[in-house]
Design a protein around this nucleic acid. Structure first.
Lengths: 189, 189, 189, 189
DNA sequence: GATGAATGAGACTTCATTCAT
DNA sequence: AATGAATGAAGTCTCATTCAT
């Protein structure tokens, strides 16, 4: 009845297409884009979208979770890198880099919800733990000042993403802004 | 139509009330709040809102411009302060502080529009010039590193506002995040 | 602000038109008829319907309340009639007669809700009290058996309405069915 | 296609399960319950439901016909009972009793369709003939007044079912209402 | 100038029915 | 025969904007 059978091949394919389309549409036009457009982009009927994601919110969430997962994968690679300091800053950069879109990690949900998204969902907690690990390692290696915690780092990630978004195409400006924050994060004295 | 006569007293009063109401409503509930609610808060009919601001977008813009103006006033005060470095950082702090709302300076409009708002409007350009002045003074005084320009500073303001928004009520976290950025901004070595 | 001013003339006119249209449409095609059809019938936009009645349910309720009110008016006339027994049966007949439609007094809402509608709303309670009065008067006059109460009478009204609905156009059959129930209601021996 | 072969065993089993599930779901939640829920309750795919019953309406009809058939069976038993009057009233009671559900014999379809269902289908006509038989026997025995016919009796059954539905859980009220109608049906004077 | 009722496009969501697997 | 994913028409409701009062 409530079988654990794997979903049919076509269903899986459509689900992936919808997520891809949602990602594209949300990224370029914001989460307020009509669901119908996502369906069209995915090449499916709107009913199919709602079969896979019962509400629009669920769809947004799913797209965000994928983003979180991607970040986690990247972080996982860096968590064991030789140079803990370099790994930390590289991770920050990759987060910021992945936010050049209208669907920022957390902008999608209201600010309050954003915190929730990172605390309430297993994926969010995973990512949080990972950031914690990367951060502490860098701190132990003396590459990052000791008086910041995960919360501040995540906050700065969010802020830098926003700043980068603001700077738009001007990559040089982004680099300069990041270098300011990075300098601030480095152990001093 | 475009007679140069000054607006009637009640019209001016209504305009002010609408702007105040819009600020309150947008700040607490975001720009997607229905215009009708703003009219109700202002104690006027919805028709009056649209008479003063032909589209909702125009209303949002007007509210933002007021914010910019307030910032400019604060900046103006600091532009001549005794300690140029302190003035610079105080200005940053006041910008961040004024962003604890759902109507961030630039979140309101899409990122692209945001840049436009700061470049295209006279008010935006005024503010920009002011930031430039405060920044250069602090740099000449040796309080801020020389390799950042207005663009980066404004970008960091936006980013810090977002970060503060993210941190929500946790003022201590906000302080720690700001101290990181401020350290990064200070002249080093 | 929250003024008690009477609604504008055109609004009142539209409200009346919508109620009329809703009555007509619901009666002939059932409450599941789309709201759009009611709007079209009333000659207004669909937005106007929802401005006056925030949900479809509210519209249905309003239509039913009018029906209740009409019944109450008829009942009021009979409550003081010379022959209490005749008045009682006449009232029953008028209730049944008014139910030759797809919007029966209570069919509209689920059975449970129906009871609620007659108990929860002031209008329903008014009508209930009125039925009580007419019934008791007839009982005191010896025209109706003493062992039935308001609840049973209202239940029988509902049932007879349904039976009449079932019989459709065959008025003779309706008469015969009613005469059975009326005989049963008369005081015996 | 229309080969006379008997249906496969599993097909027959599924058909039965679907009808059972449809009965359960329609009874408790009304005919507007989604077909998908019936499929789930029956433990089959929705495609299977539509294979057996080409439209939802056909499914509703089938469920109703089963109800008619059950009634016919009960009636058949009573048709030969010793006391024709008691049999008649017992039959009425069992009809009313079987209607404590959201799928009343006839409520399911619009009133017009209901009559049709009882006249057009062989099952409906069978039941009608049966009611006729039970009624006439009771009339011959002097237990029921002579001036009512099948149509009125069926109409009263429908009405009493509705009245009982209205009374809901209050069985005492139901009894009192029925006693009124039964008294009215008895031969008088 | 002010009011707020009217408008209608468009958003989200449901569900009977079809059809590839 | 059975399955359940896909479909899209249709329904309810929102809200920026217009316009008669």
């Amino acid at each position: 009845m409530t079988d654990g059978r794997p979903p049919r091949a076509d269903a899986r394919r459509n689900r992936a297409r919808i997520l891809e389309a949602a990602h594209a549409v949300f990224s370029s036009r914001g989460v307020s884009a009509p669901t119908e457009d996502i369906a069209r982009t995915a090449g499916v009927g709107i009913g199919t979208v709602f079969r896979h994601f019962p509400t629009k919110e669920a769809l947004i969430e799913a797209v965000i979770l994928i983003r979180l997962e991607r970040l986690r994968e990247q972080g996982e690679l860096l968590a064991g890198a030789d140079d803990p300091g370099a790994a930390f800053f590289e991770f920050l950069s990759s987060v910021v880099d992945s936010s050049r879109t209208k669907l920022t990690l957390v902008d999608a949900l209201g600010p309050a919800d954003a915190v929730a998204a990172l605390s309430d969902t297993p994926e969010g907690q995973d990512l949080r733990r990972l950031v914690d690990r990367i951060l502490r390692r860098a701190q132990r290696a003396g590459a990052v000042r000791a008086d910041v915690g995960v919360n501040e780092v995540i906050g700065l990630m969010v802020g830098c993403s926003r700043a980068a978004q603001y700077a738009g195409h001007d990559q040089r400006a982004v680099q300069r802004m990041l270098s300011v924050v990075y300098d601030g994060l480095r152990a001093h004295r």
